[in-house]
Design a protein around this nucleic acid. Structure first.
Length: 673
DNA sequence: ATTAGGG
DNA sequence: CCCTAAT
């Protein structure tokens, strides 16, 4: 797999902003929100901290879990009965889950390096790793050069290049910088910053690659003209210095029509050294905020937002993206914090990738590439991505697997993710900026702002090869959810201090690992592909459920974007899930969705009780319409019949039971055998 | 935090 | 799936 060459030969340029791959939702509704979906799965999210240099300051609010605990106790009693009705097999399964081996980051710590070594030795591999690496370097370059970023699209140059070249293609998208000398200069100008990044921050991927090399080489070494790609001659280490950036990041300013940008006139001094984005918090809150953000966005951000949220010196006129990060730090912080709450991150946690912590300090910002920019907007926006995190990965490893095989598996998984290709997306204030023609300034990314809420997303490009092995949900079920742990925690810096929580590991994943159910999608690639546009962006790694010692890794395709206001990507229920749901409802009844979830989807973090309730609703509807009218993966009539039966039964008894207040005392008569 | 429904 | 109101 490692050798696999990208099918589309790198043609996968940045995602066509204009043609979002949207799930072909049968509904046809919600078109307005569709575009959000296309960003999903496999996103490497880079968060740009508004101000940089504040790395050390991790102090931050830790979400108080006391509340949760309380409520939990409160519910303990309530849930008891649920447990009682759990089938024996479930009990056993639950047990197994707990005893499953956990692949902790700690355990795999060493892997990255090995992977790196391999990368160095294997050009093919390198190629695959290209995009990410490049991404990493981009930041550095930007910072170092304090300049604009101009890049070429990978696809443009990747054509005839072999695999390696291909890498070059991707990777070669160079920063706009021009010359080594120039770069050098810049580098010297801010040695500290660069150094710091190299040494301490860009760990995520660096670790995967070869941080040493990265550190050693100034980004500029491989730099080339923005318009022309650097020859793909630099393989191994060289490529690492290559910067890569794409579309969204590439702003060829067309013009400077922004007269309102008064705010951009003064180069900001190094403000905000202390600010550091934190990711934590309650996802509920996040949701709320996200929701708000979304709403406001819909209502024309500027117009609807309280003045305080609007860029200070700027008029809101015609600039949806002019939210001033400066003014919103607090809000933003909260939002971001909530993103990675470790406890309940059913949705966000799944994000393919996340954190690429970035910092941006607006010192000068030039909105254009050197070719175009001139006079008035001669400011540069300095962005610094402190690190990239590898996408969340899930690994199924037999206990008898060897460490060596584990390492290989991890390496393969990483390579697979990367080989899929990545697109870069830019989000400002959680809003995806899709207009590539917009200038940074127009987008509200100015030197005078504390760009603490710019997010970069690395999305998996192109389709992934379908896994050689398919796992059925049942099979997955046998695997403990706890068996899989996110591997992506290479980040050394601690942007998410409190995420540590109850994890016994030092490096706690910023986001919760997803349960095996997250893997369901892998088991039904076809379905996903046919129904969800995001499917194309999901990287799938060969999964070998076999117990022969083979390892299986499933990169966690992040179904949803971690960013605020992003709609979750569709994850159609599989027949198996439907079956489980039906069974659970038959047993528990409608109206007690939390219990249903606990019973059948406890480890399916991406299925909330609301989801289950909704699904049931649709199932009932589906069961009541003619088969011709049904869409999506056909649900066995047998199941639908059971749905109707259960629905009828429970709707009939629900009120009765409630009145009696005896709840589950009476088990449904229609319990399946 | 859940539940119930409308969208 | 999302969003909300009502618990």
């Amino acid at each position: 797999m490692v050798m696999r060459k990208r099918p589309d030969g790198g043609s996968r340029g940045r995602r066509a902003a204009t043609t979002p791959r949207v799930p072909n939702s049968a509904r046809g509704k919600r078109t307005t929100r569709k575009k959000k979906d296309d960003m999903c799965a496999f996103d490497l999210l880079a968060t740009v901290a508004g101000t940089l240099l504040a790395d050390q300051d991790n102090s931050d609010n830790v979400p108080n879990t006391s509340g949760a605990a309380k409520s939990k106790n409160k519910k303990a009693v309530k849930e008891e009965h649920d447990d009682e009705i759990l089938p024996l097999k479930d009990m056993v399964m639950a047990k197994d889950r707990r005893s499953g081996c956990v692949v902790s980051s700690g355990g795999i710590c060493g892997i990255p390096r090995q992977a790196n070594n391999r990368l160095a030795e294997n050009s093919l591999t390198i190629n695959e790793a290209g995009p990410m690496l490049e991404s990493l370097t981009v930041k550095s370059n930007m910072l170092a050069r304090d300049s604009f970023v101009s890049c070429t699209r990978p696809s443009e140059t990747s054509r005839d290049l072999g695999i390696i070249p291909e890498f070059g293609a991707h990777g070669t998208l160079l920063h706009g910088s021009s010359s080594l000398a120039e770069a050098e200069q810049m580098h010297q100008a801010e040695p500290k910053v660069v150094r710091k990044q190299a040494d301490g921050h860009a760990v995520g991927l660096h670790g995967l690659v070869d941080s040493a090399d990265l550190d050693a080489r100034p980004p500029a070494l491989v730099s080339s003209d923005s318009s022309s790609c650097v020859p793909p001659c630099n393989h191994d280490k060289e490529h690492q210095t290559t910067s890569f950036c794409r579309g969204e990041v590439q702003y060829a300013a067309d013009r400077d029509d922004d007269e309102n940008s008064s705010g951009c006139t003064h180069p900001s001094t190094t403000e905000d050294k202390s600010y550091k984005p934190q990711y934590l918090g309650n996802h509920r809150i996040r949701k709320l905020l996200a929701s708000k953000v979304r709403k406001t966005a819909r209502n024309k951000i500027c117009a609807g937002i309280p003045s305080r949220k609007i860029c200070g010196g700027r008029s809101s006129k015609g600039s949806k993206l002019n939210l001033c990060s400066k003014k919103i730090p607090a809000t933003r912080q909260k939002v971001q914090r909530t993103i990675f709450k470790k406890k309940k991150l059913p949705h966000h946690a799944t994000s393919f990738a996340k954190d690429m912590l970035t910092e941006a300090s607006g010192t000068s910002c030039r909105t254009e590439g050197r070719n175009k920019s001139r006079a008035s907007d001669d400011y540069h926006v300095k962005l610094r991505i402190k690190s990239f995190n590898i996408p969340e990965l899930f690994i199924n490893v037999p206990e008898n697997a060897t460490i060596g095989s584990l390492k290989r598996t991890v390496m393969d998984a990483v390579n697979n993710i990367i080989q899929g290709g990545l697109r870069v997306g830019v989000l400002l204030q959680g809003k995806d900026i899709q207009d590539d023609n917009k200038t940074l300034r127009q987008a509200g990314i100015c030197h005078d702002k504390k760009l603490n809420n710019i997010d970069f997303t690395l999305e998996c490009e192109g389709g992934q090869d379908s896994p050689s092995g398919v796992v059925t949900p049942e099979q997955m079920d046998l695997l403990s959810a706890d068996v899989v742990e996110p591997l992506a925690r290479l980040k050394r810096e601690e942007p998410f201090p409190e995420t540590g929580g109850d994890d016994n590991q030092q490096h706690i994943p910023p986001y919760r690992s997803r349960s095996l159910s997250d893997l369901y999608s892998v088991a039904h690639p076809v379905e996903m592909a046919s129904q969800d546009t995001s499917a194309s962006s999901q990287a799938i790694v060969p999964f070998a459920p076999s117990d022969d010692g083979a390892l299986a890794i499933v990169p966690h395709c992040n179904p949803r974007r971690s960013e605020t206001g992003q709609r979750r990507t569709r994850m159609p229920f599989t027949v198996d899930e439907v079956a489980m749901l039906v069974e659970a409802v038959e047993l528990i009844g409608t109206g007690r969705w939390r219990a249903v979830k606990m019973h059948a989807f406890e480890h399916a973090e991406h299925r909330t009780y609301v989801d289950l309730k909704d699904k049931w609703k649709t199932l009932v509807h589906t069961a009541n319409i003619s088969p011709q009218e049904r869409r999506g993966v056909p649900v066995p009539q047998e199941l639908l019949d059971r749905v109707l039966a259960a629905q009828a039964y429970w709707s009939q008894h629900q009120t009765k039971l409630r009145d009696k207040t005896r709840g589950k005392a009476s088990l449904p008569a229609i319990c399946p055998a």
